[in-house]
Computed example of a mutant assay.
Amino acid sequence: MKKLHRLRERLVTAVPGLDRDPDRLLTFVEEGSIEFRRGRDLTHEYRFVAQLVLTDFTGDLDTVMLPLLQWLAEYQPDLDPGEALTFEAEILANRAVDLALRVPLTERVIARVDCDTGHIQAEHSLSHFPSHACMATRWQLLVRETTEQEWSVAAEWDAPHG
């Protein structure tokens, strides 16, 4: 589940205030399965729905979604656009919400069997598809409520490959 740990790290560093209280981001695995084909090696792929729950969130939803979508574009670009992300929110008092996000993820494990030595070498293949169109290493999310207002910085984070 190395990919889920990386996704969690991205959100903790990108969502304003979450780095000061990372325990507000809960992570779970739902609907996990393993795709495996019989053969000499034990290579397989984890397939699961990652659930991330951000508790007592009071910020702008874009400060969560845009870093998440940017991460998905680089680490899970093969997702069906209509099913890449689902979410629910429980509205709490004082404009806070508990936000639950669900993202289907895959993680391939190359496991080579050496019958002569009795070794199995396992390596997680965390594919990365960087965008060469945007080479910025630091991002700022600028927002405004109306076209008459000035833009203001809502969030900042390092690029997934940065």
Rank of each mutant, 00 (worst) to 15 (best):
T13D: 15
L69K: 13
L92D: 15
L105S: 01
Q70T: 10
W151C: 05
W157I: 03
S127E: 13
A93K: 03
V143L: 03
V15I: 14
V103F: 05
D62P: 02
K3I: 00
T63H: 04
V103S: 06
F48C: 09
F28N: 11
Y75D: 05
C134K: 15
C134G: 07
T58N: 09
L4K: 03
D116Q: 05
G39S: 09
D41K: 08
D80W: 13
S127M: 13
H44A: 01
I110C: 02
E90V: 07
Y75E: 09
T13C: 13
I110N: 11
T63Q: 03
T27E: 10
L18V: 12
V12N: 02
E88A: 12
L52N: 10
A100R: 13
I91Y: 05
C115M: 06
E145W: 08
T58D: 12
N94G: 01
T43N: 06
R40N: 14
E150R: 15
E90K: 05
E88D: 13
G118V: 02
R10S: 03
P22C: 11
V113G: 01
M135W: 08
Q121S: 12
L52G: 01
D80N: 15
A93L: 07
T106H: 00
E145Y: 06
L26W: 11
A84Y: 10
S152Y: 09
L92R: 14
E150P: 10
E45M: 11
T147E: 14
D98W: 04
S127G: 12
F36Q: 11
E35F: 02
E83R: 15
L99K: 14
